[in-house]
């Protein structure tokens, strides 16, 4: 999304001793925040609004994951997320290649794609629900409509990043068009496309959750709403924390895969 290069600050770039120092300070920081939260919730927080972290951890076992309904809701959300993400990837890369392959398509259609990307899609949510219904189909469709754009945009950007010198070099050595795409364009696109995939994962999750909050018939979104509306913050925070950790884990997973595919560059 933004032009931030976090890898520069990543712990890996530092000598061992310093890395340990930064990591432990970071852990201390998070722990300090948790303690502050605990103190605030115990002393000043209104019950029913804020739960201290210890209660949240207590609620994690019995109330949240002990409840088979919640378990199946979490599973449902992840199935929806997975299907929506795969569809976004297939559709996004196909459309990106289609628009980005030719000069005319890129000049003419790319601005339209960018404009569609800029529209706050959440305003289409009632329409999506009307067309696809209250079930998983609507949530998947909304997830796809969120996830597909970052992939299209980054696929097109990735194709433009390939140096024309390399393409001409390959062509002059007798590479066919297909070979140029397979051996020159694709490897150079990987980094940009994966940045798009990571963003798409976040966006797909956002789309699915928005739809769940809006239609409220199942999934994690439904249960966060139920807990909030019944003034039951401990399981609410437990559920949110679980999902947040999963979001971070998925993000990390996509990043690992990306590292594998871009290793040849180093």
């Amino acid at each position: 999304m933004a032009t931030i290069d976090t890898s520069r600050f990543a712990a890996a770039a530092m000598p061992n001793e310093q890395r340990l120092g930064v990591a432990s300070t970071r852990v201390l920081l998070v722990l300090g925040l948790l303690v502050l939260w605990e103190v605030y919730a115990r002393l000043f927080g209104r019950a029913g609004m804020v739960a201290p972290p210890t209660d949240v951890i207590g609620a994690l076992g019995p109330t949240v994951f002990g409840d088979p309904k919640v378990r199946s809701a979490v599973l449902l959300t992840f199935v929806e997320l997975g299907v929506a993400f795969l569809m976004s990837v297939a559709l996004g890369i196909a459309l990106g290649l289609l628009v980005g392959i030719g000069e005319i398509g890129r000049r003419g259609l790319f601005p339209i794609v960018l404009f569609l990307y800029a529209i706050p899609q959440v305003v289409l949510l009632p329409l999506v629900v009307l067309i696809f219904g209250l079930g998983p189909a609507g949530k998947i469709a909304f997830g796809v409509s969120h996830g597909v754009f970052p992939i299209i945009v980054n696929t097109i950007a990735g194709m433009r990043n390939v140096s024309p010198l390399l393409v001409r070099g390959a062509e002059s050595m007798g590479a066919s068009r297909l070979q140029v795409i397979r051996y020159v364009v694709f490897p150079h696109m990987v980094a940009t496309v994966f940045a798009g995939l990571r963003l798409a994962m976040t966006m797909t999750l956002l789309g699915v959750l928005l739809a769940e909050l809006f239609v409220s018939t199942g999934g994690i979104g439904y249960f966060t709403q139920v807990y909030a509306e019944t003034f039951n913050p401990a399981p609410l925070f437990a559920l949110i924390a679980t999902l947040a950790l999963m979001a971070v884990a998925i993000n990390e997973l996509v990043r690992r895969v990306e590292l594998r595919f871009t290793r040849w560059k180093q």
């Binding site: 931030i4 976090t6 600050f9 990543a10 530092m14 930064v22 300070t25 970071r26 920081l29 998070v30 976040t202 999750l205 956002l206 959750l209 928005l210 909050l213 994690i220 979104g221 966060t224 709403q225 807990y227 909030a228 509306e229 913050p233 609410l236 949110i240 999902l243 947040a244 979001a247 971070v248 993000n251």
Partner: peptide, 21 residues
């Protein structure tokens, strides 16, 4: 070095989940 990864990690969490709150 200390806070940037924390902030960008928090950015990956869908705030939508907190919407009922």
């Amino acid at each position: 070095r200390l806070l940037e990864p924390v902030l960008s990690g928090m950015f990956a969490i869908p705030i939508t989940l907190f919407f009922p709150l």
